[in-house]
């Protein structure tokens, strides 16, 4: 199984890829907040946010196919919470920008900006670096550990499940659905047990390398951000501020 979620063809000489993960976190998350706080009728603002992300995409040479895949992945969820809005929400007469269609637009464009920003972040940062970036920004260690184990063992688990499925199919799996359900139930149970045992062994492996539950997995003392990082973050934030507050003249 291949990892298509995070950057794997790291391009160390690419400007965006080589920025400190902290810099990317500290610019792309603010973009999401700024965009969320923008009233839906500020069309120019949303245009500028998108333009900013398109420029990053071009600079980082992110494949368009990858972006489309991400959007398609998120589309069902966005539609689920927004598709009904145009039909049920009534316009509030005192506010010309209320009503179902504006609400729908508001939700869709903000989801678009959010997903686009996260895609740029993950497509240009290796998972390990991203987690380290969050750790250096003092995100809770427990949360980061869970994320990092999930990432690491997701692939092991999928492979294990695929092996079990193959073994099952090789033994002429079929028959009534009740029987099938029983087999699938057993498979899930086996996977759970194996993961549980793996968890115990991983913990032993951590202990035998001196872990006692108190240390930081990602060294917090870290090198300072470079000149390029400050330049990128400052110019980006200025763009957001101008796009958000500068367009209302």
């Amino acid at each position: 199984m291949k990892d298509t979620l995070f950057d794997q063809q790291a391009s160390p000489d690419n400007f965006i890829h080589s920025l400190d993960p902290r810099t990317k976190i500290l610019t792309l998350f603010p973009l999401i907040f700024v965009s969320t706080s923008t009233p839906p009728q500020f069309l120019l603002s949303f245009g500028l946010y998108s333009l900013y992300l398109i420029v990053l995409t071009a600079l980082a040479r992110i494949p368009i196919k990858l972006l489309i895949k991400r959007f398609l992945m998120a589309l069902p969820f966005i539609l689920m919470v927004s598709a009904y809005l145009p039909f049920v929400e009534q316009q509030d007469l005192s506010n010309p920008y209320s009503g179902g269609w504006w609400l729908f637009w508001n939700m869709v464009i903000k989801a678009f900006i959010g997903i686009y920003a996260m895609s740029v972040l993950t497509a240009t940062t290796r998972f390990a670096k991203l987690i380290q970036g969050f750790a250096r920004l003092r995100a809770p260690q427990l949360l980061l550990m869970l994320l990092s184990f999930t990432y690491r063992y997701m692939f092991v688990l999928v492979e294990e499940a695929q092996r079990m499925k193959r073994a099952r199919d090789a033994r002429a799996y079929g028959g009534r659905w009740l029987w099938q359900a029983k087999v699938i139930g057993q498979m899930i149970g086996t996977l759970f047990l194996r993961s549980y045992e793996r968890g115990e062994r991983v913990y032993l492996a951590m202990c035998s390398r001196g872990y006692d539950g108190t240390q930081s997995l990602w060294q917090n003392s870290s090198e300072a951000l470079g000149r390029r990082d400050y330049a990128f973050a400052l110019s980006s934030i200025s763009v957001f501020i101008l796009a958000r507050w500068g367009v209302v003249i």
Partner: peptide, 9 residues
């Protein structure tokens, strides 16, 4: 080794 290599990289 999958038990020993538990980090993302």
């Amino acid at each position: 080794p999958d038990d020993q290599l538990f980090c993302p990289s």
